[in-house]
């Protein structure tokens, strides 16, 4: 079992967390066409290598955060909480 570095609680077993998938950005709902919206809903890059993911510390601090994980090696770079500053880049 890999460990996830929670920015609040430190490294904990991945069983304490919920995985929320690759980090993406939500298209503006009024301007979007179905193809783009469904790309946001369903299409994942799933790279063989480094990717940025959203995790939720469900059995801990109940905070969402982003980590970078290498899908080949399960190496994980330290978690980063979502904040007011980063919100513009994570959600359009």
């Amino acid at each position: 079992m890999i460990r996830i570095p929670c920015p609040n609680c430190g490294p904990r077993n991945s069983s304490e967390f919920s995985y929320f998938g690759e980090l993406g950005s939500r298209p503006a709902p009024d301007a979007v066409d179905p193809a783009h919206w469904r790309h946001y809903l369903y299409d994942k890059k799933n790279p063989a290598g480094w990717t940025t993911e959203k995790w939720y510390h469900a059995s801990g601090c109940r905070k969402f955060f982003a980590i970078e994980r290498n899908t080949l090696t399960n190496d994980v770079k330290s978690g980063r909480p979502f904040g007011v500053e980063s919100s513009s880049e994570e959600s359009s």
Partner: peptide, 14 residues
């Protein structure tokens, strides 16, 4: 609860 927290924390932190 998760759904609500997800939106609040990641999309609308302000």
């Amino acid at each position: 609860h998760e759904w609500v927290e997800n939106w609040l924390q990641t999309s609308f932190p302000s």
